[in-house]
Design a protein around this nucleic acid. Structure first.
Length: 182
DNA sequence: TTGCTAACCTAATCACCTC
DNA sequence: GAGGTGATTAGGTTAGCAA
């Protein structure tokens, strides 16, 4: 699914956020929460953030990683998983019992203007640029990161659609010729 | 050098809002 | 309802750091 990052992308990127070193106590709290609820809602993540003195966005990332590792492990040990799945997996929770989400962020036209300008200049901003932007428009850095992710995603879809359009037109023309018996 | 894992990515989907 | 868009997810890669 994930594609290899091109050289251009790498050079366009400033740099990553410095790697967080969680303490043993923090990890203990995260693990306990993960065992109880691998898909915590916003309120739970906020609570954990307060309890461990960590940013909520770091909690979100932290939960993503063990979930992914858990899935990889499940695939490599399918027979073990059969036993474990009954008490450790919560597919029903994943689908139906989802907790609350973060409130929908609404951007003003001037905030969007700033974001779009920045996106045009660099669609892969590093942590410094994201933080600067966040400060400029008055939203958390994690929201800026999500905005860029969504924007890139939709940009790729739009590009693909534009590339597919001439192909579809050609296919339509060919179909018409077939229908006419040419 | 290697293994672990935080950070980050895309693509798909969910869910809310506006029209 | 449909379309736009922010939030969340799965599943993958990249890169920092300790052993």
């Amino acid at each position: 699914m994930a594609k290899n990052n091109s050289l251009n992308k790498t050079t366009a990127r400033n740099h990553r956020r410095s790697r967080t070193k969680f303490t043993e106590d923090q990890l203990k709290i995260f693990m306990k929460a993960f065992n109880q609820k691998p898909y915590p809602g916003y309120a739970t993540k906020q609570k954990l953030a307060l309890e461990t003195n960590t940013e909520e966005s770091r909690i979100q990332i932290w939960f993503q990683n063990p979930r992914a590792r858990h899935e990889v492990q499940k695939r490599s040990e399918p027979e073990k998983d059969l036993e474990a799945s009954q008490d450790q997996d919560h597919p029903e929770e994943k689908i139906h019992g989802r907790e609350d989400r973060r409130c929908h962020t609404s951007y003003t036209s001037s905030q969007l203007h700033t974001l779009i300008t920045a996106f045009t200049n660099n669609p892969y901003p590093g942590i410094d640029s994201r933080e600067q932007l966040a400060k400029e428009i008055g939203v958390p850095e994690s929201r800026v990161q999500i905005w860029f992710q969504n924007q890139r995603s939709r940009f790729h879809v739009q590009k693909k659609r534009e590339l597919d359009e001439p192909l579809e037109q050609k296919q339509d023309q060919e179909q018409n010729l077939c229908d006419e018996g040419v």
